[in-house]
Design a protein around this nucleic acid. Sequence first.
DNA 1: ATGAAAGCGCTAACAC
DNA 2: GTGTTAGCGCTTTCAT
Lengths: 352, 352
Amino acid sequence: MAENGHVNPHVRSRQGDDLLVAGNRQRRTTIDDVARSAGVSRQTVSRAINDKAEIDPATRDRILRIAQAMGYRPSRFARAMVSQGVTTLGLVIADVLNPFFPEVTSGVMAAAERQGWQVAVYSTGSVEREQRLASTIADHVDACVGFFLDESAIDRIRLSGIPFVLLDHDHRPPAVGGVRIDFESGIRQALSHLVERGHERIAMLDDRARQDAGAPRTRHSLFLSVAAEHGLPADESWVQPAGNSVHGGAEAMDRLLASRPGVTAVLAYNDLMAVGAMRRALERGAAVPGDCAFVGCDGLMLGELVDPQLTTVHVDKQHLGRAAVEQLAALMSGSRPGETVIVPRLVVRGST
Amino acid sequence: MAENGHVNPHVRSRQGDDLLVAGNRQRRTTIDDVARSAGVSRQTVSRAINDKAEIDPATRDRILRIAQAMGYRPSRFARAMVSQGVTTLGLVIADVLNPFFPEVTSGVMAAAERQGWQVAVYSTGSVEREQRLASTIADHVDACVGFFLDESAIDRIRLSGIPFVLLDHDHRPPAVGGVRIDFESGIRQALSHLVERGHERIAMLDDRARQDAGAPRTRHSLFLSVAAEHGLPADESWVQPAGNSVHGGAEAMDRLLASRPGVTAVLAYNDLMAVGAMRRALERGAAVPGDCAFVGCDGLMLGELVDPQLTTVHVDKQHLGRAAVEQLAALMSGSRPGETVIVPRLVVRGST
DNA sequence: ATGAAAGCGCTAACAC
DNA sequence: GTGTTAGCGCTTTCAT
C-alpha cells in the first residue's frame, strides 16, 4: 500500500525548487513537480504519461524524459480515486506449500475470470499472520474469500464491511457467506469402507495446528464419534497429532506405531500426512494395505502418483472455489449470505 | 480495484436527500452521506469508524448503526491517499497448479516478511492473461517480481516505473532486476550423468507452451548443444513437445516411444512432465531405469514421493525467492538493477 | 467532544 | 495542443 517516500504530507512548500534543499529528502515526486520542471500544466503531464492523443509528440517525449529523470511514478491511489478499476478479489489460503490450496485457487480464478474480476492470493501460515492480514486486507481488495482459523481475524474482516465468504469453517457469522465441506459424510464413507475391509483397530492422524480439536464437526471429533458408532475403540489415544506436511505424517506414524502397534488402518487429516505416514510404514517394512491401510482426505493429484495409490476422501476443490465466487457474486448483488455445502466422495485405490 | 457502485462521479448533487430519488441508484455511499444522515460532521463519522478515542460513546454507536444501515464502506483509495500503508509486493507466477511456484512463493514470502512487506500472488496462465495482468499490476502493488514470457508484458510493467525483478528470463531489460537460473550448468550435469551411465539415445520433453524454443539458453537449445558436445544424436526429432503437467508428460512419452522407440533416457523440461512420462513408461511395462531412465528439472518434493524416486536438476526455489526480494530491496534503495544467478545441482535418485 | 478548513495526487470536462 | 477548474473520499490539523 505504501506510496514510498511520502514522509510528512504537510511540510510541503509551494516553491518549486525546495526539492533539493537539505532536510527535505524523501518527499514523493508528484505530477505537479514534473509539470513545474517541464514548464507545462499538470494536465499535459497526465496526457503524456497516459499516452493520450491530444498532445504534441515532441512535448510528450520531453515530458516523459523529465518524468523519468525525476523518478516520477503516478500514485496508484490518486489514480484509482478518479478512474474506474477492475474488481479485485482477495483469496486467503493457509499454506502455500500445501497442494490442496492451488486447486481451490484454480477454481476461484476460473470463476472470477468469468465475472471479470482479478484475483490476488494471500497466505497466512500462522495465527499472527492471519490477524495481520485480516486487518489490512480490506485496504487491498474489494472482496474477500478465504480459510481462517482465528475468530478475531474473521471478525475484523466482517467489521470492515467488504463482501466476505468463509471457506471450510464451522462458526460462520450470519453476515458472512460460506462454503462448507461435509466431512461428516466423508469420514463416514471412509470408516464404513475400512470396517467393510475388516479393520478393527483404526487410528487417526490429526493436524496438530488445529486448536478446535474438541469442537463438533472437526475431522477429529467426527472420527471419534463415527468410530464409536462402528463399535471400534475410539478414544484420544487413537488420535495422533501430526505436523501438516508429508514429513509431519511420517513422524506421527513413528509415534503411532510406538503407542498403538496393533493399528491396521490409518485415516489421515489430509493426503499430505497420509502419504508421509504410508511412506514411513513402507520404509519400516510394513505391507500396504496388507499390514496397514491408509486413507487420506483431500483427493490431491499426488495420491495417484504414489505407490500404492492413495485411497482418499475426495473433495472437489475446483467446485469449492467456484462456489465461493458464486457466493460472493450473490452477496455483492445484495442477496443475503448463504452457505454452500460440498459433499466429498470416497475414492478407493490401492492403499486400502 | 473498483469502488463498487461508483457510476458517474460528476452527476452528484449537493442536496442531501437525493439519495432516494429515482434514477440516482448506484452511487457510492460516502462518509458525507453518513454524516448528513446522522446530523454530524464527516469528521465525527471518521472518528466513529476508526474507533478513535475523542468521541462520545453514544454518538459513536449511533453513527456506526447508521453507517451500517446505509451500507457505508470507506473507500480504500481515499483512505490510502492520506494515510500510510504497508508496502505490497506483487508476485506473478505462471501456473497455480505447478508445484514449482509454491516453493518460490514461500521463499519470497519469508524474505518479504523480514522487510515488513506484504505479498500478493497473481497467476497468469496464458499470454492474454499475462498481458492483462501486466497492464493492471502497477495499480495494485508497490513493486513486482515475477515470471513472464511475453516481452510486451514485461515492457508494460517496466514502463509503469515500479521496481521490477524478472525471474528466469533471458532478455532482461537494463532497467529491470533479475534472478536467472543457470540451466546450462544443470543440463550439463544431467547429460554428463546419463552419458556416464552409458546412455546413447537421449530424448528431451520440452514445454510446448514456450515460444522461445529456438532462443539460446533455453532448456531446449541447451539440450541440443550439450548433447551434440557428447556426440549424441541431437536434432529436433529427439525433442518432444509436451503439455506442462503430469498428464502432458505421459502423453508425450507415448508419442516419443512411437517416433523414437530406441530411446533409453529422457530429460524432461520439469519434474511434473518427468513424473508423468516415467509413470506412463512403467504402465507400458518398461523397467525404470533399466529400459529407460528419467531426469527431471526443478527438484520438487514430488520427485521423492514417486517410485522409483526421480533424479532431477534441483533448483533452490526458496533461494530464488529470497534473491528476488533482495534484488527488489536493492532497487528500492536506489541501487542499479543487477542479476542473481542460481546454479542448480543434479540430485541422483532411483530413476537413473 | 465536535466542527471547519486544507490538502493528499490525480483525471474528466470544458475552456481557449 | 494546452491550461484551468472542479472534484474523487478521506484524514489531519487547528479551532471551538
